[in-house]
Design a binder for these strands. Structure first.
Lengths: 243, 243
DNA sequence: AGGAAAAATTGATCTAGGTCATAAAAAAAT
DNA sequence: ATTTTTTTATGACCTAGATCAATTTTTCCT
């Protein structure tokens, strides 16, 4: 079962299934391998590490984007602020870059807000240093383009899921994604409330509860409090695909 | 009215309004200005121009991505293929690049399909040449990153619109976008059927018709066949904002 | 021009899923 | 330990928008 994902990360795009769409796969720290020793030193000298507690806001949509963020430890949500409710773009575990789309001329503000689900540690890298590296090191820039494109692919899948699937499909998708991409285990302790899951799946809290109950009754998952175990991956994937 | 958009392209992101989200603003042809004469020649030598008739498919999701496409003339839709129905990611007028997110290592297939609304002319640029340019010319790569990030910003706005707004808001958004970003006039001859508009706004054809009737009755637009004129921008923007 | 096919329109249902109210359980605060 | 607050759970209801069916208009074809 797991090898499907290991062998072909992009299978979900090619087969038009759009499953597993809440988070990214690729480890993004690798982009720094492209830097020369001198450049690495430059980054080191101009970065600072900040620790955030659970629930804190790391960056605020529309505010001045002075830094690119690298999530060293933790789990965060990346979201657009909306009047009645926010729209979560992606959730990001450790070893990922956050704030890349803010790096462009003519706009130096954050496109989205980011806040933590759990205590997190973030490296802040000066955006001007980052831009300088992009201009002087084409291999680094190419790697960043790869990351941006991977993010885009993931976002497209997620939006397909949110726009076209109905509740059960969306819930199955998120549970699979949490299991396979975030916690990398079929049993995990979810640091999110039902309300948070509702925000993530773009449904009401009541619907989250009802659908989790359905899944529980059908023997798809075992739930005790915050602890969730996926019992039947095959069926869960089927539900995610059918919508 | 128009100066709002002229002065601050990104205003819609900063004010959390997410209007005007169906297409991009920036002219993307400018990225080629970053190339040296030698590099320009390389591109010229390795490109070919193809003309497509209305309704034809320019590229197919999942197929091998051998080329980056530059839309010289025409109007196309960029979409994810879906079982019951497709999801349109963006519509693209002339002077824009298409297929950029397919440029990344480990994946050489198109993330999406593209087909024409009207007769279109496309320059096909070899993807390997394109990747070579990215690796050897950091300024070019930086420009491409800008374009990718602008595309991302637009996509986020569009998805917010599709996921959170209801029918009237979505329709207002699309009409504003067509008027301001595609046709650049408050009156335009729309080469799309009601069914196409439905696909674009993620609603049924019947709903498109009903809402256009509402807008007509309220004096917001004038419609005769394919010809649409927006009579009241202020109110239309209000509807788009409120959802 | 005349007939066929496609597109636009309108009205009548039907339903997925949101909202509201209320209760039970769990967590936090005193 | 007991009160207060937050979270989870369940049922009743209600609405936005899809689907279906039937009609008119437009477009296309020979």
């Amino acid at each position: 079962m797991f090898c499907i994902f290991a062998l072909n990360i992009y299978a979900y795009m090619n087969t038009n299934n759009y499953i597993n769409t809440c988070a990214n796969f690729i480890q993004e720290s690798s982009c720094f391998d492209q830097l020369t020793d001198e450049e690495k030193l430059l980054v080191d000298k101009n970065q600072l590490t900040v620790e955030y507690k659970k629930g804190e806001t790391i960056c605020k949509q529309g505010s001045f984007a002075s830094h690119i963020m690298f999530l060293e430890e933790g789990l965060v949500k990346v979201y657009l602020e909306g009047k009645p409710k926010n729209l979560i773009l992606t959730i990001t575990p450790s070893s990922h870059l956050v704030g890349l789309p803010s790096v462009y001329d003519g706009n130096n503000t954050f496109l989205y807000s980011v806040s933590t689900y759990i205590d997190s540690k973030v490296n802040l890298i000066d955006v001007n240093i980052f831009k300088q590296l992009l201009r002087q090191n084409a291999n680094f820039a190419t790697k960043i383009i790869n990351i941006l494109n991977e993010n885009t692919a993931q976002a497209y899948g997620r939006f397909f899921c949110l726009i076209q699937k109905q509740l059960h499909g969306r819930m199955a998708d998120i549970l699979l994604c949490l299991s396979q991409r975030i916690f990398k285990s079929n049993e995990f302790n979810l640091p999110l409330s039902r309300n948070d899951i509702g925000e993530l799946t773009s449904m009401s809290t009541e619907s989250v509860i009802r659908i989790m109950k359905d899944f529980k009754d059908d023997g798809l998952i075992r739930v005790s409090g915050k602890n969730i175990e996926i019992l039947n991956f095959e069926k869960m994937m089927k539900i995610s695909e059918v919508g």
